[in-house]
Write a protein that binds this DNA or RNA. Structure first.
Lengths: 353, 353
DNA sequence: TTGAAAGCGCTAACAC
DNA sequence: GTGTTAGCGCTTTCAA
């Protein structure tokens, strides 16, 4: 671990003062072009990199954004992380990430660890509606944005799916195919966004006389959810249509159907949530609600950057539209087995305010 | 952004010196139990957190591990990141992550950004065999470990799958089912680990007279890979068995078969790579090579921590064994459509040296 | 066992 | 436009 060059080494080699080196590299003050060139050459020759810790300690500013997600093993969250990293980096900010494991205590401790980096702002997907750890962020008057799992109206900007419209469109698709008895697979009804999705299905059903919904809560992990769902299948006949409200419950329904010998869509039509390559590749391909992951990240970052730059506007509450990708896992009631629905695309929901 | 409490605030409240607070919180020197209690109470009351930058600047040490991966959108890499985070955190180290997008120039610049944090060690999955950016790490005499994509014998510890044995077991499974003509779908033959997997298949085929392999290189992205594979299907009859060498190529084969109307396993038997919930949930479920992700992370961290602690042992080269999960996507040649293979489990490869 | 004081590398304020 | 100087918050001597 050889000692790395410091700003003094660069200054000496370039024949200028450390302050000038700092100004050249940081671009805060105007510097003579010739000097600047010498400085840059010296820095390159020595392989100099600004010492983040020293820079941060002195200036009091960092260009760090902290992001807290429930899990790094759920592709929806990792997609959001990847998209957010692209956003922050484009504006010269580094993203640091931690995961809460959906446990409030862990959330608090991981958040505290993130805050020890003294980030400029925070992006959070909370592990529950209460989001008690928000007080940690608020205590430092740090700007933050809440993404995806948005509950109570708080002081922060929020960016989420238009959950109600997305789920409503999924249900309407099944209703349009003649399904009147619909199973709704929720992960956890303790989450407001999941309850919103339920409400969206209910709203669709309310418009159709005789349509009824059966709600099942499967819990957060895939394995237990699949087992619980298989248990449900064993207890009696299933509705002809099913809507899964998360990517994990989509998998759980598929796994349970598979284990119990139910065929999709011959025995049951399925609308999944989130849209991944495997849903297109597997057979039958899965009709699914696609969340606008990139747009969610972009909007959240735009909100946060505005706050970082001092915006005092009232909290924004964005709700983004989902798209329904219609594939082979849904079919009209009474259609012949083997009939293929046409490839269609329907847009759901509206850009919220 | 209210000013956060400093060590002086805590010291004043506890009625001790800043040095004592530091010793209580850092646990470097023995401190009287009563004082320590007062200090901890004061710190808790103020919500004090050590200022990382200041601490690092003064001590010259960080407890940061930097991890560079090709992509945060590939579940194999994110699983490795999640596992690595658990490892490092258990030993009090923070993990910071960046992704190279599989582009050498980006790799170099992202690595430089990671090194600006002055990490204690680095974990890398390079974007190519050359891994030219290793010079950046070597220049600082930083300990590092190369994971998954291991090529030339270098000065660093390496942790990878026993690629040859894993692929060989996959091929032997197909051979055992009577398949003699086997398609091997590689992502990129520029990667040594992929070439090793090819060699494993070849080794298995070499032992069976008349067995032949057809190799197809599909490229890194799912969409182009699926298109290229569909093109191959259009040009003529396919082998009866196929081995995909990555999770992306597994998806690409499935998607191509699906698009072109080939049925798995009636028309073609498929062994996938990596093992995810969707492979179990979809129908037919996918026979797949499961990589020991947690073990890879654990071993890599153990290597790195040893180096951090000063080990000068010659570079370790670990090769971990994969497991073949046999499911429904593979079937004996000539078996009746609809026949289900029993659920078996076969272990592949051996713990390397 | 504790405190006082120095200084890590950098940038901001100020002087020129 | 450039240099000098001070000090960010912490940890680590060193002295008591």
């Amino acid at each position: 671990m050889r000692a790395q060059p410091t700003i003094k080494d660069v200054a000496r080699l370039a024949g200028v003062s450390p302050a000038t080196v700092s100004n050249v590299l940081g671009g805060r003050r105007a510097v003579d072009a010739g000097l600047a060139e010498r400085v840059r050459a010296a820095a390159a020759e020595l392989g100099y990199e600004v010492h983040r810790a020293a820079s941060q300690l002195r200036s009091g500013r960092t260009r760090i954004v902290a992001m807290l997600v429930p899990s790094l093993e759920n592709p929806f969250f990792t997609a959001l992380v990847a998209a957010m990293e692209r956003c922050t980096r484009a504006d010269g900010y580094e993203l640091i990430v931690a995961s809460s494991g959906d446990v409030p205590n862990v959330e608090a401790s991981r958040l505290a660890a993130l805050l020890a980096w003294r980030p400029t702002g925070v992006i959070v997907i909370p592990c529950d509606d209460a989001f008690a750890s928000r007080s940690l962020i608020a205590a430092e008057r740090l700007p933050y944005a809440v993404v995806d799992r948005v509950a109570v109206a708080g002081e922060a900007d929020t960016v989420a799916l238009d959950n109600r419209a997305a789920a409503r469109t999924a249900a309407e698709h099944l209703l349009g195919l003649g399904h009147r008895h619909i199973l709704v697979a929720a992960s956890s009804l303790a989450l407001a966004n999941i309850r919103e999705r339920c409400a969206g299905v209910e709203a669709a059903l309310a418009a159709v006389p005789g349509a009824v919904m059966e709600l099942i809560e499967l819990g957060p992990t895939f394995e237990s959810a699949a087992a619980r769902m298989a248990g449900r299948v064993a207890t009696g006949p299933l509705p002809s249509g099913a809507v899964a409200l998360t990517n994990q419950t989509t998998l759980a329904l598929l796994a349970a159907f598979h284990r119990t010998g139910l065929r999709v869509p011959d025995d049951v039509s399925l609308v999944g949530f989130d849209d991944y390559a495997w849903m297109l590749a597997c057979s039958p391909s899965v009709t699914a609600v696609r969340q606008p992951v990139d747009a969610m990240a972009t909007e959240a970052w735009r909100c946060l950057l505005d706050r970082i730059r001092g915006s005092e506007a009232p909290p924004l509450r964005l709700a983004l539209a989902a798209a329904l990708e219609i594939r082979q896992s849904t079919r009209a009631v009474g259609a012949l087995p083997g009939a293929q629905p046409g490839q269609q695309l329907k847009r759901a929901g509206a850009r919220g305010s």
